[in-house]
Design a binder for these strands. Sequence first.
DNA 1: CGCGTTATTTTGATTAGTCAAAATAAATCT
DNA 2: AGATTTATTTTGACTAATCAAAATAACGCG
Lengths: 227, 227
Amino acid sequence: MTHYRSAMASSTVEDYLKQILLLSAAGDELVSMGDLATALDVVPGTATTMVKALAAEGLVTHRPRYGVNLTAEGRRVALGVIRRHRLIETFLVNVLKMDWTEVHAEAELLEHAISDTVLDRLDALLGHPAADPHGDPIPTRHGKVDAQVYATLATCLLEKPLRIVRIVDQSPQFLEFAEQSGLRPGELLRVTDRNLAAGLVTVRKGPARAVTLGLAAAGHILVAPER
Amino acid sequence: MTHYRSAMASSTVEDYLKQILLLSAAGDELVSMGDLATALDVVPGTATTMVKALAAEGLVTHRPRYGVNLTAEGRRVALGVIRRHRLIETFLVNVLKMDWTEVHAEAELLEHAISDTVLDRLDALLGHPAADPHGDPIPTRHGKVDAQVYATLATCLLEKPLRIVRIVDQSPQFLEFAEQSGLRPGELLRVTDRNLAAGLVTVRKGPARAVTLGLAAAGHILVAPER
DNA sequence: CGCGTTATTTTGATTAGTCAAAATAAATCT
DNA sequence: AGATTTATTTTGACTAATCAAAATAACGCG
Ligand SMILES: [Mn+2]
Ligand SMILES: [Mn+2]
Ligand SMILES: [Mn+2]
Ligand SMILES: [Mn+2]
């Protein structure tokens, strides 16, 4: 009646590894203890302690005073967690018809509890999706993940037709704003104005509706040129 | 990024409470520390320590040296866990088409990770089932559970037509035996012979197939008179 | 009734994960 | 360069959950 997970990484360890990967932006830059601690909602000393333990397990490399990043093995584990997270989100939205603004918190917990068997069934049921409801790419079972780089509403060309491919912010507040403003993955729009000094970006969907948002927010919406 | 559950009971606490309920056979008999420890796969001293802590929290009443049972609040929590467990099993079999012999272990973990929101969606998707794939009754959202008492293949009348309503043993070994022998919930059969001295029961489905099983095993298969 | 067997409880330790606060190192600013 | 600010690490302490092994209580039998 005790529970486990393949080759045993606790959900705490899984969350640390996942967060290190996400904060290093799928790249190899060092993640600071401060950022890691904030993301995991622990005090910095806790992050330091945990990172040293992960380093001793060979899951991360730690440059004291500078930061941490993943070993190949740590990355493998992290990608597994991210795959589970994103497939679960997709299931919750596509099958259970939940709101895409609220599924992140659910997946945060379920990602540690679902077996490979169940995950594979889910993946098949969903038709092996390439991205989750936020447009986040879903790693394959073998840890391949689409690393394509996109422009954002803060950096793209003006007046060109664009399609939203991804929202890079999991907070319900931001997602609800996006939902309300019609800024969902898949939507078509163009940026009609960008004022760097004022930090404002204006976008339009068709001739009608115009939405103005701050540069930081605009930077969280990834787009690809359309047609 | 830390995780939680409504009014916070750890998965360990949830498993203790659930197991106490299951071992007291939905009744009010005291559960011994030995049985509880065995069910939870811990040493008896651990069960004692935990039960004292649960008693301090008002979730159980402990009669030292005799046993433990649930308070109303402990029972409420336990029924919630059991509801989640059984709805998850039903989902895994009915939607993901997993084998009814293997879903118990999956549910053992997922039961602690699923929110009320997701559970309600699942319940609706499944059409508010009254029982899980093993025939175990699913408590309602308000903690009502079908307490009907059934005969078993070890106690029922001979030669009467019967329908299997429930298998009271979660072990994959037993369930695979049941599956192989065609002894699934819903199946029709009759007991053609019972030898108490030898401890053997023989059942037949139609005129064809006869299966012989031991008394203990027969006692794990609950049946209702048919027609 | 007393003695041995068996179950339960207690005691002392251990591990994972955490925090508060002090110590230290690095970065930044005169 | 020296002083100040900021980030990181260390230290000491705590909680939840567990085990091994010793102590104790209840049971069951002659
Ligand atoms: Mn998580
Ligand atoms: Mn997502
Ligand atoms: Mn469980
Ligand atoms: Mn069941």
